[in-house]
Write a protein that binds this DNA or RNA. Structure first.
Lengths: 353, 353
DNA sequence: CTGAAAGCGCTTACAG
DNA sequence: CTGAAAGCGCTTACAG
């Protein structure tokens, strides 16, 4: 195999539209026209130009183009207040990217850490958002507090928010948002448990998160419509979701009456529950049934595989991107809110009573 | 809370450097100078200009700037042949982003699927790489075959490759690359097992992947230097790494002599082993010890937590970005290869004999 | 220190 | 159908 590129060649001078025009013996406007395959150019001329383009290896400068178009066709995916791109958001990002690249748009990835108590104008936005003309709009993911929303509005940057992790926002405030249905997810999973004969069903989830509260509401709704008593399992202070699950299991085992099934606030909590129960020799689902929420990659790898609520993450990303594009093309359009459905997935952690 | 933005305002006409010049009563060159805080501008003028900038809410157009600079300060993180951004690559991406944003550079995320058998010039590159002037360079991640490398070289796009997943490349071919030390990782973990008194140690990993082969080599080295016999566990055809681990466990349990410890090709394989052993009632680490590789997020959540080899993923990303920037600033520079160290992490899956 | 001018690589009316 | 010109929003010598 030959060594390619010794690193000693001079950087080739960029060939421009003018070089091509000269080579093809036409004006620069004509080159631009065949490039944009717009107005009529005679086949003969077009062929000559294309030939010159190929011979010179010409590729039009995208930046120059954008400045005229007043649009960069770049959007930003902004992940806020996460110390790590969990697979959940990774999937959303993928959805954004796939939809964007299909329409020849590009996706910039950026990260932001901020406090909900910082004044909007004091939030130190990432460079991407400080520059002007670099991006056309932004998709907000991660945890979103009102001050960030305010800030983004203040700099007049078009945006769409992934709404499930919005915290502390009242319903009056309008903006474009895409989310999935927390409520219906636990409504389905709890109803399923009830259909399988369960009556004593507990809920284990950290209610300080609004999305977990919505899931709690779905659970309560299912319980109520079956005249069953909702029970929230409240462990002492936990360190993260997995630990919350573990502490919840301890709580359950210490209690007098033991539920026959538990609805977990998410898959991580379900994992913690499973871990702790197993360690105490309590078998899932033989002795206690368990359902999660989110359908993380690992859910299917648990033993037995976790019955949980599936969220269509790629679709969320795609819908965010789609909505942002609509906003960009119709700035006057009314704000829209989309809630995508969730679906309960039966696997191995629920026993029929 | 007031409703902000009814969506009916006219899109404000962009204020340009000329507006500011007029408002401040100076020439446009002066505006540019204070913007770039370059050459000397009298304090008095500078103040007047800044005042005008603030009053008009002017933000310079980044695109226009870039076209003059002949540099976009945008790089692309290209993930190849992955149907999903695993946390491993997510971490690398984060490293790239953190280093980039510190130097006011931006990171475009793009995805590519291609076959190793496609001719280089036939590879359908993502839009980002087809455009000219959009990005300054690219960081190659995911599985990299020689044809992709060729293609990137052919379009004269500066690049750095994350080298651990490069497949089918001979050593003659030079390019900038950053990787981590597969060999040393298993060398350390296997030596540790030996120190703990283990003698019958098997290796379970899919050797069709070059990086797993390097890990196998590290394992063999440790065995050889202790005059122990390396044993590769070869299960029948498996579907993915977890399944490979499960099938390996079956193989072990079916065998006549059972190793006291197993070095897994990666954490997923270790998880598969653990799952299958547990199901057969074989306790880890009481009856069999286990070590993984990669230190995935889940490793610490296993029960007991997995002893494994830590890879500094963020650092890999940062180093890739750093190297790409060096390449951009010194196109003539000799190619460099960096191998970052790995570290064995003791947790709960190894028993002392 | 600062203004007027030329120029970056394109697109797009305006004439013909 | 096509060329010459003006212009996008900036930067950067060139004079003064």
């Amino acid at each position: 195999m030959p060594k390619i590129g010794s690193g000693m060649e001079a950087v080739p001078k960029q060939t421009t539209i003018r070089d091509v025009a000269r080579a093809a013996g036409v004006g620069i406007g004509t080159i631009s026209r065949v490039l944009n395959s717009s107005s009529q150019v005679s086949l003969e001329t077009r062929a000559r130009v294309n030939e010159a383009i190929r011979r010179l290896g010409f590729r039009p400068n995208a930046q120059a183009r954008r400045i005229l178009k007043r649009r960069s066709e770049i959007v930003c995916f902004l992940l806020s207040n996460r110390d790590f791109i969990h697979p959940f958001h990774a999937r959303i990002l993928q959805g954004v990217e796939s939809y964007a690249s299909g329409l020849r748009h590009h996706v910039l990835f950026a990260v932001l850490h901020y406090s909900p108590r910082t004044a909007p104008e004091k939030i130190d936005l990432p460079p991407v958002l400080q520059e002007h003309g670099l991006i056309d709009g932004v998709i907000l993911a991660g945890t979103i507090y009102p001050n960030l929303l305010r800030r983004i509005e203040a700099i007049r940057m078009p945006f769409v928010a992934f709404s499930n992790n919005v915290v502390g926002m009242d319903g009056d405030h309008l903006y474009d948002q895409v989310g999935f249905d927390d409520f219906s997810g636990t409504l389905q999973s709890t109803r399923y448990l009830i259909e399988q004969g369960h009556r004593e069903i507990g809920f284990a989830g950290d209610l300080s998160y609004p999305w977990i509260r919505r899931r709690f509401d779905g659970y309560r709704q299912a319980m109520r419509e079956n005249k069953l008593k909702p029970v929230s399992i409240l462990p002492r202070k936990a360190d993260g979701f997995v630990d919350f699950g573990q502490k919840s299991a301890e709580r359950i085992l210490a209690g007098l009456s033991r539920p026959s099934a538990v609805v977990a606030g998410n898959d991580e909590t379900a994992y913690g529950l499973w871990l702790s129960l197993r360690r105490q020799g309590v078998k899932v689902p033989e002795e206690i049934s368990l359902v999660g929420f989110d359908d993380r990659e690992e859910a299917v790898l648990m033993d037995p595989p976790l019955s949980t609520v599936r969220v269509y993450k790629e679709e969320i990303g795609q819908t965010c991107m789609k909505m942002l594009l609509e906003r960009l093309h119709h700035p006057q359009m009314a704000y829209s809110q989309r809630i995508l459905p969730t679906e309960f997935v039966v696997r191995g952690t629920v026993r029929q009573l």
